[in-house]
């Protein structure tokens, strides 16, 4: 059974530890701007939502990629970008209806959450339990996944 990131915005204090951990894991620097998980604040900081890829079953990014740079990690269920194959065309960034795969101007490639190969550092770093890494079946499924389904089946007009 794959595990997935369970996000509980109620517990998020917007401390940005997850962004720091993510950027350090992937880019070797503590720089929230380079994080694949992003905290969005509402109501002048009274509410915060950690936001990242849900590894949706539709895999819009994977199917849109013209050079097969995005593949499914069978072990974790993550959709991963092979940086040496990605040409930086950015088609995936407009194809993903969640906006969770983004272009990195510095490298000329796209980046997205890869679940850190099965040990997501954002969850490890979160001090309040707002981000946890749990078995996918008992999370009741992330609401964003339901929404992914909706994108696919919404009747036209």
């Amino acid at each position: 059974m794959h595990k997935s990131l369970l996000i509980d915005p109620e517990k998020c204090t917007s401390c940005l530890q997850c962004e720091m951990a993510c950027s350090f894991e992937h880019e070797g620097v503590f720089n929230p701007a380079k994080s694949r998980i992003k905290i969005f604040e509402f109501e002048h900081g009274r509410r915060a939502i950690p936001y990242t890829c849900t590894q949706c079953a539709e895999a819009w990014c994977l199917y849109a990629c013209p050079v097969e740079a995005i593949s499914l990690n069978m072990e974790t269920g993550a959709k991963e970008v092979a940086e040496d194959v990605c040409v930086g065309c950015k088609v995936c960034t407009i194809a993903c209806p969640f906006g969770t795969i983004n272009y990195n101007q510095d490298t000329g490639k796209v980046i997205k959450c890869d679940l850190c190969g099965g040990d997501p550092q954002c969850a490890a770093a979160c001090p309040t339990g707002a981000i946890t890494y749990v078995d996918a079946d008992w999370t009741g499924y992330d609401r964003m996944r339901e929404w992914a389904q909706k994108t696919h089946s919404q009747p036209s007009a």
Binding site: K90, T93, I94, C96, P97, F98, G99, N102, Q105, T151
Partner: peptide, 13 residues
């Protein structure tokens, strides 16, 4: 460049 995909999400849903 960040999160532009949500525009597709909003339009298509």
């Amino acid at each position: 460049t960040q999160h532009v995909g949500v525009i597709r999400g909003l339009i298509q849903t």
